[in-house]
Amino acid sequence: MKILAVCGMGLGSGLLLRMQAEKALRTLGVQADLEVADIGTARAAAQTADLIITSNELAQQLQGVKPKIVTISNFIDLQEMVTKLGAALGKG
């Protein structure tokens, strides 16, 4: 299982997504590799990913990629991440 956190540049909001996803995966009891990609390299990185987490805005720029996309509105709300990741992973 590889999860890709996608943001504009890979060092601001994408890092936040990765941090939150790490906590959420612990809560959910799921093991997965987490990587961060910026929007410019996300399409290539998505080819080996099972799931993408990103914002609504950036999700629209990723239409057509193979992995399922989970969109997060509030990047610092752990409950949203747990709920949405859980649902996407069949743990909801």
Partner: peptide, 23 residues
């Protein structure tokens, strides 16, 4: 320029923007 190029995705939570650019 980052917001001009990539949009308002930097608003990471209700009421909070995280502005930054590349190193």
């Amino acid at each position: 320029a980052t917001v001009d190029a990539l949009g308002p995705y930097i608003v990471i939570a209700p009421g909070i923007a995280l502005a930054h650019a590349r190193p």
